[in-house]
C-alpha cells in the first residue's frame, strides 16, 4: 500500500513550505537578537500550520485542519507572545556570549543540513525509493533537529535554549505532518498542550534563576561540577 500518493502540485507546495521553514531556522541561527529569533520562530510555526492544512486538503485528513489552527494559535501566537513577555521581564535583548560568530554558525548549519540529507537519503532509498517528498521531509526534520541542538550548544542564554528546543519540536512536527499525517489526533493535541506547559515551566524556572542564581546565562551557572 502506498503511504503517500500526492500529485505534483501538492508535492511542490509541501516542498516550498518545508524549505521555507528550514530557511527560517537559518535566520535564527544567523542573528543574535532575541527578538528576531522569536519572530522567525513564529513565522516558522505559521508555515508549518500552512503545511498541516495543505496535507489535510490534499490527503483528505479532516482532523489536520484542527491541528493547523491550533498550531497557528499555540506555536505561532501564544508561545512567541509568552517568550516575548519573558524577555521583557528579564530585560534581555540579545545573546552576548555565543561561542561563534553568526557567519561561522551559518556555515556549520549548512554542514549539518548536508549530514541530515545524507542520513535521509540513506533511509529514503531503503524505505520508499520512488518518493522524493519522503527524503525532503526527513531532511528537514533532521536538519531542524540538528540546528536546534547547535543553537543550544553555541548559545548560553536560557531563552536561546528554550528557542533551540522549540526549533527541535517544530522539526519533529513538520516531519510528522508529511510522514505520518494519520497519526492519532489525540496524540498531536496532547503534544501541543505539553509544549505549552513546558514553556510556562521554563518561564517560572528562569525567574528562579534570575532571582536566586543572579544570572540566566549557562556560562555563569558553574556551581555544580564533579
Amino acid at each position: 500500500m502506498p503511504i503517500l500518493s500526492f500529485g505534483p502540485l501538492a508535492a511542490s507546495l509541501f516542498t516550498v513550505l518545508a524549505i521555507v521553514s528550514l530557511f527560517l531556522s537559518f535566520v535564527m541561527l544567523g542573528s543574535h537578537w532575541l527578538k528576531n529569533h522569536i519572530y522567525a520562530f513564529a513565522l516558522e510555526s505559521w508555515t508549518i500550520a500552512a503545511l498541516s492544512a495543505a496535507v489535510g486538503y490534499f490527503g483528505h485528513y479532516q482532523e489536520l485542519y484542527i491541528i493547523a489552527v491550533l498550531t497557528a494559535l499555540f506555536r505561532g501566537t501564544l508561545l512567541p507572545y509568552l517568550i516575548l513577555r519573558l524577555m521583557a521581564k528579564l530585560h534581555l535583548e540579545r545573546e552576548f556570549t555565543a561561542l561563534l560568530r553568526p557567519s561561522s554558525s551559518l556555515v556549520l548549519g549548512t554542514v549539518l543540513v548536508i549530514v541530515a540529507f545524507l542520513v535521509a537519503r540513506h533511509l529514503g532509498v531503503r524505505v520508499a525509493p520512488d518518493d522524493r517528498i519522503v527524503i525532503l521531509a526527513l531532511t528537514c526534520m533532521l536538519s531542524l533537529k540538528l540546528i536546534g541542538f547547535l543553537m543550544m550548544i553555541l548559545r548560553s542564554e536560557a531563552i536561546s535554549h528554550i528557542l533551540g528546543l522549540l526549533v527541535i519540536e517544530n522539526g519533529i512536527f513538520l516531519g510528522s505532518q508529511i510522514l505520518v499525517p494519520g497519526m492519532p489526533l489525540l496524540l498531536e493535541l496532547v503534544i501541543l498542550f505539553d509544549l505549552l506547559i513546558i514553556v510556562l515551566t521554563f518561564g517560572v524556572l528562569m525567574r528562579y534563576l534570575q532571582l536566586h542564581a543572579g544570572t540566566t546565562s549557562s556560562r555563569h551557572l558553574q556551581r555544580l561540577v564533579g
Binding site: I198, F202, Y208, L209, L211, A213, R223, L224
Partner: peptide
C-alpha cells in the same frame, strides 16, 4: 530556592 537548586532544576529540565 537557592542558587544551586535553581541551577540544578534548570539543567535537569533542559
Amino acid at each position: 530556592r537557592e542558587a544551586e537548586s535553581a541551577e540544578a532544576a534548570w539543567k535537569y529540565i533542559i
